[in-house]
């Protein structure tokens, strides 16, 4: 009664449904950046990361050079530790570089801005596993407003 063609098509239909399901689930699951050959990992501590997310871009003057691969909390100091997967092509950043959490536009998404530091003889390049010490945390609007109001109040 059933032809083979119908059976195959129904099988494909069910598989496409499953594939769609998996695609949706994978969109939710934090798909890890392929930290294989093409990237090296850096770490940086912040006191506040604001709205930074896994897979947020790392930019140097607007050029994407890497992505946030993980965000964890340091178990001792209770500070956020951000891991970055940097593109291997950009491997010439000195260890004096600074990392700040910036916002694109007034309401836009947050990203990491990498500012290359000075080069000197005793300054080494950042390599896999290094940490960037000089970081600027995210601006939290509420704190800013709070400070502003406080300073206004103390003047009077």
């Amino acid at each position: 009664m059933l032809t083979r063609k119908i059976e195959i098509l129904v099988g494909l239909f069910l598989l496409s449904g499953l594939a769609a399901f998996l695609v949706l689930v994978f969109n939710v699951a934090n798909v890890e950046v392929k930290s294989g050959d093409s990237s090296y990992t850096l770490h940086a501590k912040f006191s506040n990361i604001g709205g930074l997310k896994v897979r947020s871009p790392v930019k140097v003057g607007g050029v994407v050079v890497g992505r946030v691969s993980a965000i964890n909390l340091d178990p001792e100091k209770l500070e956020p530790v951000v891991s970055i997967a940097m593109d291997k092509r950009y491997h010439y950043f000195p260890e004096t570089s600074t990392l700040s959490i910036l916002t694109s536009g007034l309401l836009g998404e947050q990203f990491l801005g990498l500012t290359p530091g000075f080069m000197d003889d005793d300054v080494e390049l950042l390599v896999d596993g290094d940490s960037i010490e000089d970081t600027h945390s995210a601006l939290v609007l509420e704190e800013l407003i709070g400070q502003f109001l406080y300073s206004m109040g103390s003047k009077d």
Binding site: V25, N27, V28, V31, K53, V54, R55, S56, P57, F111
Partner: peptide, 23 residues
């Protein structure tokens, strides 16, 4: 739009229970 931000923000906002299960 940057492909990474597209996916990263998307993934951060979509919740398994709230969105996919309800769908």
């Amino acid at each position: 739009i940057d492909s990474g931000s597209f996916w990263s923000i998307l993934q951060a906002s979509v919740e398994w229970r709230q969105d996919i299960v309800n769908c």
